[in-house]
């Protein structure tokens, strides 16, 4: 009986405490920079697409929500289309971990509600952003040994000239 009265008193005291509820649309919660939210495709510092359509993200995706098709343009690889079905995506971040070129990244934005389910399928135009995302200085083709127009083999950053295998010189 006494404990009931005590409970009543302590519950009554809660009337004067602050609410713990965050009224979400009016007051945005703080989201850490590494929050796993909406997926984007970033560009390198030169403004070119970072994605080289290696399919590793699609392989890593546990729910198979990523679909893309490789195409090639003068040595550079591009995705012909790149499609993420956000109605399937579980925001696990495996695609970001799998990506060798930092192209695919997760952002702290989760407000992606749609009335029509089809609208949750994001195409490449929807995914591509104009900036570099979390890695401002990284450019795959500048460090990779692949020959593209304007950069031959051996001209990448920190890369030695290729060995001429037909020469006897050391």
């Amino acid at each position: 009986m006494l404990s009931s009265v005590r409970t009543l008193w302590y519950t009554f005291l809660h009337l004067f405490q602050r609410n713990v509820t965050v009224p979400y649309p009016e007051q945005m919660p703080y989201l850490a920079p590494r929050t796993r939210g909406r997926i984007i495709l970033s560009r390198d510092p030169d403004g070119e697409e970072r994605c080289v359509s290696c399919y590793l993200c699609a392989v890593a995706c546990p729910v198979d929500c990523i679909s893309l098709q490789k195409t090639e343009d003068e040595g550079r690889w591009y995705p012909e289309f790149f499609r993420i079905n956000f109605s399937r995506c579980i925001f696990c971040g495996f695609c970001e971990e799998a990506c060798p070129t930092y192209a695919i990244q997760l952002t702290p934005d989760f407000e992606m509600s749609e009335y029509i389910r089809q609208n949750l399928v994001y195409e490449k135009e929807d995914l591509l952003i104009s900036g570099t995302g979390k890695y401002p200085d990284y450019s795959f083709y500048r460090v990779a040994g692949l020959a593209i127009p304007g950069k031959d083999k051996g001209e990448a950053e920190g890369e030695r000239k290729p060995i001429d295998i037909r020469s006897l010189m050391p």
Binding site: T11, H14, L15, Q17, N19, V20, T21, P23
Partner: peptide
């Protein structure tokens, strides 16, 4: 509303 305040939440607002 009062029940909400007693439980540290706003209730229907």
């Amino acid at each position: 509303r009062l029940l909400g305040f007693l439980q540290d939440r706003p209730g229907p607002n």
